[in-house]
Amino acid sequence: MAERSEILLNSIAELNEVEALSFLANEFPGAVTFSSSFGMEDQVITHMILSGRLPISIFTLDTGRMFYETYYTWSQTNERYGTHIKPYYPDAAHIEAFVEANGINAFYESPAMRKQCCFIRKVEPLNRALSGNKVWVTGLRAEQSSSRESLPQLEWDETHGLYKFHPLMDWTTEQVRAYIKQNNVPYNPLHDQGFISIGCAPCTRAIKPGEDFRAGRWWWEDNSKKECGLHVHK
């Protein structure tokens, strides 16, 4: 798969983001999907896909503990583009068992407990969402964390058995904000309140001036542990 990845990467190297998305959609018809959490990056990609009428499906993972503002952005996005972004929810029985055994806020107790919560609410639904697809489009950017600085724009994901494409990998936050403003793209109002990376409400806070991009996520944990499992490869 490494050789095929290199061929695909070379094919899109000289294309802009929309052209690259279109190329992959034609290369893998009906099997390219985009995961949105309604953050700034994801709203940019959503605009590219829907305004360009690209044959790429869009889904979101509704963990059940999202901010009101995130649901508002979801609704505004559906209304603006006349679409219906598909939600995937965690298994109710697994949530019930976890909360009954550990408590409603058990994720604060240890990294292991938090990752178990993330697995139930995010990873398992993601596995269902990606099933049958060959390309997973994400909003990852190199600027977001040190672990993402060396990611190629297109890579093979052994865990899910598909290609991952990060069209905005080299974009800066300023570029993302400028694109949103220029194209009047709906965005999460929490971004105007110091929230940069937005996840579940109990696990996300606004960051302070000078803090790392991911400082607002699982702020009670060591920085080296700040992943939920969605982008961890085998």
Results as ranks from 00 to 15, higher is better:
H191L: 01
V176M: 02
H166L: 03
L162T: 08
N183E: 09
D170K: 08
F165D: 05
N183T: 10
W156V: 04
Q175K: 08
E149W: 12
Q175G: 06
D170T: 12
F195Q: 03
P186S: 07
G194L: 01
E174W: 06
W156M: 00
E158T: 14
H166F: 08
F165T: 03
G194Y: 00
G161P: 04
T173D: 09
H166P: 12
E174D: 12
K164Q: 08
D157C: 13
Q182Y: 04
V176T: 15
S150Y: 12
D157V: 13
D157S: 14
I196S: 05
D157F: 10
Y187H: 10
W156N: 03
E155P: 08
P186A: 06
T172M: 02
D157A: 06
T173V: 07
G194Q: 00
G161H: 06
V185M: 01
H160L: 12
W171A: 09
N184E: 10
V185Q: 01
L162G: 11
P189V: 08
T172P: 13
Q182P: 07
W156S: 01
D192K: 03
N184W: 06
Y179G: 09
A178G: 11
Y179N: 11
K181W: 04
P152W: 01
E174T: 15
P167M: 03
L162Q: 08
Y179C: 09
T173N: 14
T172A: 01
Y163S: 08
I180K: 10
E149T: 11
V176Y: 00
L154T: 03
Q193D: 07
F165V: 04
W171F: 15
L162M: 14
Y179R: 11
V176K: 03
R177V: 13
L168I: 09
I180C: 12
T173E: 06
Y179V: 07
A178Q: 15
L190Y: 02
L154I: 11
Y187C: 05
G194T: 02
W171Y: 11
I180M: 09
V176S: 02
K181Q: 12
P189Y: 06
A178M: 10
N188T: 01
T159P: 15
E174Q: 14
D170G: 13
T172F: 03
P186Y: 04
G194N: 00
L162V: 13
P152L: 00
L151A: 00
H191K: 04
D157W: 07
Q193P: 02
L190A: 01
E149Q: 15
Q153T: 11
L162Y: 05
L154C: 03
H160M: 06
Q193V: 07
P186V: 09
E155I: 15
I196E: 05
G194K: 04
H160P: 12
E155M: 14
V185S: 00
S150F: 08
N188I: 01
F195W: 04
Q193E: 13
I196V: 10
T159S: 14
Q182T: 15
E149R: 15
